[in-house]
């Protein structure tokens, strides 16, 4: 018989809570009303400075004019948003593939670490934006130079976070795996890789917003498609409502991609400390 039937029951166990739908909704409201209030306040300031004529409309268009531009040109904007989103997602996906691979190489091979790491660091020092014109020369005005810039800019945070993640594994866990007769593949798949995911995800969140920047920079430098092109053209025409519209759509793309990564993290890492129930982490 187990002794906890006679002794006091084991302590320190918090119930495995699954919040009800209403509780989740309340939680969502609680988390989102403050940033929404701030955005609303900024919107009001924007509206106030334009309606009072404090700033000329050709410098800062009114919210009304911007929304009108957004609606009137929705087809045009959607077409270009699609291009930028595609460049971003493809660039980001390739950056993840290459970044994770490079990180595994760096962690598993001392030679790769000594060879790759310094070069990586050096490459990071070169401003990617400054290489963008070169890619246009090499690859033309199409899709590929934008993707390449997105890859380059998103690659570094992914490698760094993945290397940190793979190294964060508990050394005793690795010894235990050895006593279970685990091969290198099993140790990687069952222990090292899952242990690295929280680190990887924090890198991915940085990387995905950088990938948007990379794609847009590519479009600035050369091309006739994408939100970067829209903004550049609006700029040339001093069409500030369109410029603002482009900026708003671009931010929207970045925010949506960021939250998609957060969603993936939530689904894949329900166990992670950052995902634990609020009851345990908030004091009041």
């Amino acid at each position: 018989m187990s002794s906890n039937t006679t002794a006091s029951p084991p302590t320190g166990v918090t119930p495995h809570a699954r919040p009800a739908a209403s509780a989740r909704a309340a939680d969502l409201v609680d988390r989102s009303w403050r940033p929404l209030a701030l955005l609303l306040a900024l919107f009001l300031v924007w509206w106030a400075v334009t309606v009072t004529g404090l700033i000329q409309p050709y410098l800062v268009p009114s919210p009304g004019a911007t929304i009108e531009t957004l609606v009137d040109n929705s087809g045009y904007l959607i077409q270009h948003t699609w291009i930028t989103t595609l460049e971003t997602v493809v660039g980001f996906a390739l950056a993840v593939a290459f970044g994770v691979l490079a990180a595994v190489l760096i962690v598993y091979s001392p030679t790769a670490e000594k060879t790759l790491y310094p070069v990586l660091l050096f490459a990071q020092v070169i401003p990617k934006i400054a290489i963008a014109p070169l890619f246009i020369v090499w690859l033309g005005f199409g899709f590929s130079p934008k993707v390449l810039i997105a890859i380059l800019i998103a690659f570094f945070p992914i490698v760094i976070s993945m290397v940190a993640g793979l190294r964060a594994v508990d050394p005793e866990m690795l010894e235990l795996a050895a006593t279970m007769g685990a091969g290198p593949l099993q140790t990687f798949g069952k222990i090292r890789l899952p242990a690295s995911l929280p680190h990887l995800f924090s890198g991915l969140k940085v990387a995905v917003t950088l990938a948007v920047t990379g794609a847009v920079v590519g479009e600035f430098v050369g091309g006739n498609e994408g939100l970067g092109f829209v903004i550049l053209q609006a700029n040339g025409n001093i069409d500030t409502p369109m410029l603002f519209a482009g900026l708003i759509v671009m931010s929207f793309v970045g925010v949506v991609l960021f939250f998609l990564i957060e969603l993936a993290e939530k689904l894949l890492l329900p166990w992670h400390p950052s995902r634990r129930s609020n009851a345990a982490t908030t004091a009041f």
Partner: peptide, 27 residues
Amino acid sequence: IGYVFQRAALLEWRTARRNIAIQAEIR
């Protein structure tokens, strides 16, 4: 052999049951 450390050294992404089961999975 079976080995137990001072720290439990559990995989934090696995439930208690699946932490025990890793022994079976690897073997």
